Simulated assay, not measured.
Amino acid sequence: MPELTEGTTFRDEDWYGEEIIDRRFVDCEFHRVDLTEALTRGAVFTGCTFGNVSFNASRHVDSAFTRCVFRRCNLFEAEFTGCKLVGSTFTECDLRPLVVDGGDWSFVALPGADLRGVRVTALRMREADLTGADLTGATVTGVDLSGASLHGVRLVRADLRGSDLTALDPTRVERTGAILDVEQAMVIAQTLGFELG
């Protein structure tokens, strides 16, 4: 059984380069913890709060951060592979450059997030809140954005090929130079009322 830590508060701790393997944290708080270059693998964080935590160059593999709160955290060059972040929220976080490959980030709240140039591939982001987020120059390919809140999103020069854009109203986003595949272009044309022949 994974080691369980419940209801604990961690403050001003140095976890630089730590390997957090197959551990569970439930309702824990992390404040000013240094997780720079740390690795989580198979770790589970449920209902945890991260405040002013440094995730710089950290790597997360097959880990879960469900219903977690991230406030003023730094995720510079952080990588998430096959991770589950369902229902988590990010507020005033530095998220660039971020790499996310696979996993489930459904119901994640990233309103107004600066996501310029991030790389997000093969990810489920159903009903995620990306209201007003800036995805300028981002790679968002093969991402399930069905039901997502995309009002006011900046998609300038973003690569969106293979992503589900059925929730996108192209008249309410900035989209100059955004890259689509043919199937997506047809869906958006139909959204705008065009009949394809």
Rank of each mutant, 00 (worst) to 15 (best):
M1N: 04
M1A: 09
E3G: 06
E3A: 11
L4N: 03
L4R: 09
T5L: 15
T8R: 15
T9Q: 12
F10A: 05
R11E: 14
E13I: 13
G17C: 12
E18L: 06
E18K: 13
E18F: 11
E18Q: 08
I20N: 00
I21S: 01
I21T: 11
V26D: 10
C28Y: 09
C28Q: 06
E29I: 00
H31N: 13
T36Q: 14
T36E: 11
E37H: 13
E37R: 15
E37V: 10
L39G: 00
T40E: 04
T40G: 05
T40L: 10
R41D: 10
R41W: 08
R41A: 03
T49H: 11
G51P: 01
V53E: 04
F55P: 03
F55K: 03
R59E: 07
R59Q: 09
R59N: 09
H60M: 04
V61I: 10
D62K: 07
D62M: 07
S63L: 02
T66S: 10
R67V: 14
R67S: 14
R67H: 13
V69R: 15
V69C: 02
F70C: 09
R71Y: 13
C73F: 07
E77P: 00
E79F: 04
E79S: 13
F80V: 02
F80E: 00
T81D: 04
C83I: 04
C83K: 00
C83Y: 01
K84D: 13
L85R: 00
L85F: 15
G87F: 08
G87D: 08
T89N: 08
T89F: 01
F90C: 03
F90S: 00
T91E: 13
T91W: 06
E92D: 15
C93H: 02
D94R: 14
V99A: 13
V100E: 00
G102D: 05
F107R: 14
V108H: 02
P111T: 05
G112P: 04
A113T: 07
D114P: 01
L115A: 02
R116N: 06
V118C: 09
R119A: 11
V120Q: 01
T121K: 12
L123G: 02
L123K: 04
R126I: 07
A128L: 06
A128H: 01
T131E: 12
T131R: 15
G132L: 05
D134V: 08
L135V: 05
T136C: 11
T141Y: 02
T141L: 05
T141W: 05
D144A: 15
L145H: 04
S146H: 09
A148R: 02
S149V: 14
S149W: 11
H151A: 13
G152Y: 06
G152M: 06
V153I: 12
R154L: 05
R154T: 15
V156R: 13
R157I: 01
A158H: 01
A158W: 00
D159E: 05
D159R: 09
R161F: 01
D164I: 10
L165K: 09
A167S: 14
L168V: 03
D169C: 07
D169V: 05
T171Y: 08
R172A: 15
V173H: 00
V173P: 00
E174R: 13
E174S: 10
R175L: 14
T176I: 08
D181P: 01
Q184M: 07
A185S: 14
M186V: 14
I188V: 11
A189K: 12
Q190M: 14
Q190G: 02
L192W: 10
G193K: 07
